[in-house]
Design a protein around this nucleic acid. Sequence first.
DNA 1: ACCATAGGCAACCAAATGGTTGCATGTCAA
DNA 2: TTGACATGCAACCATTTGGTTGCCTATGGT
Lengths: 108, 108
Amino acid sequence: MVATMDEVFKALADASRRSLLDRLHARNGQTLNELCEGLAMTRQAVTKHLVILEEANLVTTIRQGREKLHYLNPVPIHQIGERWIKKFERGKLAALSELKRQLEKRDE
Amino acid sequence: MVATMDEVFKALADASRRSLLDRLHARNGQTLNELCEGLAMTRQAVTKHLVILEEANLVTTIRQGREKLHYLNPVPIHQIGERWIKKFERGKLAALSELKRQLEKRDE
DNA sequence: ACCATAGGCAACCAAATGGTTGCATGTCAA
DNA sequence: TTGACATGCAACCATTTGGTTGCCTATGGT
């Protein structure tokens, strides 16, 4: 349950998994079969992706009878933004101007 | 040179590569050998990681004599934040309250 | 000119990844 | 209670990944 940031990054590395998050973002609380619709993948492949997303705490599930409802948990995504991306925003301009300076120096 | 968002996500998925970005963030414009220092990895392994970071446009290099200087390019990181993460920030509260509602419903 | 230094290239390897098929289990409805 | 439907589990497979070793090339200093 205590997903590491590494698990989140790894979970987000796959386009199919990002697409599943997109689908849940469009409509939350879908069943496995609903999430499979229109995908060029077997149900079992989707299950595996969903397990990885669950382990990264990006998706939470609720069993309801024979159905399993999948809910997007945006918190880890938000944390990536706060804890990781923002670190690189600071000094962004400084880094770029230094790069520009070096690129110009190269052509002297 | 036109790195896809998929390349960026994949590049960020590896902890060693994120650590290399951290090092460049701490001190920009390092050589390959400098970036290797203190790492439990051969130089060739680091080279491979740097190639992946370059292909994702996260790192730009300048050849200077026999040295190759590596510069962090924070733009793709910023774009992930803008184009991808922000999408999930919207409706974050809505998603969480819906999840809470469902969790409560489960226990009835 | 020579040698140490910085980096590049290629072959190879084990493990992880993303996918499949086949079968088992659990639940709802007639 | 029986069948259809929703999901779970496990074995298997090809490809990708992250790493290694060994050798080659290029540049700078003495």
